[in-house]
């Protein structure tokens, strides 16, 4: 039975992939804060406030007067030595919390930030566990060969096995490609009729 192969699978390799992905997350999430000029800080802030009168636009984008004024205020306040939080607080006091382009990270609003990574993490873990159990369960059932379906299938499976053995022999006798076992062809083909 081909089932033999399934148990010899290396269980270590997948972690390389997860490590890779984790690395992407960490690197990108860890937004570095390098020394920036006043204008750079100001234009970064422009993108964090909504224009109060134009739906769906930040003051960075909007061309109406109030947006221009707000951009000016940001530059004045930064020049006067206030920091990003002071500017935020100033606008929130005036226009309410919806002036922020994304919710603050406190109270109920922190949910917007917390829920996605938590849910994604849980579902990825769950997916992994479900698939792992599914795989083990199926393998066990296929391996036992005692339920009726598999009994009925047995002659056919035997024939398949025989045929596979034959073509493997043929491959070997063809030479050169003998080193390629059934499960390892680089194009990912499991077929042996190539």
């Amino acid at each position: 039975m081909t089932a033999v192969h399934w148990t010899t699978r290396s269980s270590r390799t997948p972690h390389v992939l997860y490590l890779f992905i984790a690395l992407v997350f960490i690197l990108t999430a860890a937004c570095s804060s390098v020394e920036q000029s006043l204008e750079q800080r100001a234009s970064a802030l422009d993108k964090k406030f909504m224009c109060p009168v134009c739906p769906g636009e930040t003051i960075d984008q909007a061309q109406v007067q109030i947006a221009k004024d707000m951009r000016q205020i940001i530059r004045e306040k930064l020049a006067a030595g206030e920091d990003e939080n002071d500017v935020s607080q100033f606008f929130v006091d005036r226009y309410g919390i919806q002036v922020l382009a994304s919710p603050p990270t406190s109270g109920f609003n922190s949910l917007v930030w917390i829920v996605p990574p938590v849910v994604l993490g849980i579902s990825l873990t769950a997916l992994y566990m479900i698939l792992r159990d599914m795989r083990r369960g199926k393998l066990a059932r296929v391996g036992r060969m005692n339920d009726t379906t598999n009994q009925a299938l047995a002659p056919y499976l035997d024939a398949v096995d025989e045929e596979m053995k034959q073509s493997e022999l043929k491959r070997r006798s063809a030479g050169g490609r003998a080193s390629a076992p059934l499960t390892r062809s680089d194009d990912g083909s499991e077929e042996v009729n190539g």
């Binding site: 999430a29 993108k47 964090k48 930040t58 919390i97 922020l100 382009a101 994304s102 930030w113």
Partner: peptide
């Protein structure tokens, strides 16, 4: 909408949120 419902407060969820969370996933 959830915020409106839960805390009767209007909030905006815009580019900073989506860039921060979707950005890494898109890259992956």
């Amino acid at each position: 909408l959830a915020s409106e419902f839960a805390q009767a407060e209007t909030v905006t969820v815009s580019a900073p949120y989506f860039n921060r969370i979707n950005g890494p996933m898109l890259l992956a």
